[in-house]
Design a protein around this nucleic acid. Structure first.
Lengths: 145, 145
DNA sequence: TGCGATTTAATCGTGTGCGATTTATCTGCG
DNA sequence: CGCAGATAAATCGCACACGATTAAATCGCA
């Protein structure tokens, strides 16, 4: 089956790719006003949720590894958003914690997510259902890797 | 409303980001066997659908601009997947066309998309509905930019 | 106790995405 | 005809993602 040619519009992967790029383009100018990039914002969300996480903990939450996180966290440290220090209990790991500046941004985050929510659609229940479906998909895909 | 802290799992944007990354990780080793990256594969899908497209046409289909496409297409040309030539009718534009090698990969693409389909879920109708919802979201977001 | 295996970050190279700008070509209007 | 404005691609710089590898610290077992 499915011998005929594929089209972009038939590909679930392209729908995801395109929606993710579009979301990034929407967030970028809003986040730029706070000196943030999109992945940096996600790191902050993770830290607002729970401060003092090891790099691996952040990676587990974000599905990223140190090859991506280390340089990203270094840039955020340079920007004064967080601090990185070796875990005294186990010098292999590094503990990431919010700076005052990083914590302060949380108060503006509600505003940001409201902007995005409005842009995403009008029916909140539909968005939640969509989010759940996408999370399930991500879960299935991640389980294969 | 929504004064309390956000969590990653509540963010539609993170669901998208995470699912898109996971999809990329799934595709990467499969595509690597054919010497392709994920965006390069999408370019090929667009060209299989319609050969001889201008850079802007590809960009309209993929929601990308020349700053992304030009280097990507140059790498694909170097790899022998396609050819780029100035439009004789209008030397401003560049026409991208498949090489024999690029065309040949289409036959293996059905195999690739079957792999991904199996990984994505078991109920095809559900996947199609999800894809449609994501496309609608992408459409709404893109319309704002 | 000692030392190989494991764990954790960091490093490196490649390929995107994209805002901003530049270069080349064409169009249309006086 | 000539030239300002528009259009198309290319260029540049920066920040991801990620496979592969490395370096440092800890663990576990003989």
């Amino acid at each position: 089956m499915l011998d005929r040619a594929l089209t972009l519009d038939e590909l679930l992967c392209f729908a995801l790719y395109s929606a993710n790029n579009a979301m990034g383009r929407l967030y970028r100018p809003i986040l730029a006003r706070h000196g943030l990039t999109y992945p940096q914002y996600l790191v902050l969300v993770a830290l607002w949720q729970r401060d003092e996480q090891k790099v691996n903990d952040l990676g587990a939450g974000l599905n990223l590894e140190s090859n991506t996180l280390t340089p990203l966290l270094k840039r955020m440290e340079t920007a004064g958003l967080l601090r990185r220090r070796r875990n005294p209990e186990d010098e292999r790991s590094v503990i990431v914690s919010l700076s005052e500046q990083g914590r302060a941004l949380e108060r503006e985050a509600a505003e940001i997510s409201r902007c995005i929510l409005e842009a995403s659609g009008d029916e909140v229940a539909d968005l939640i259902e969509l989010r759940t479906k996408i999370q399930e998909l991500a879960g299935r895909l991640n389980r294969l890797v």
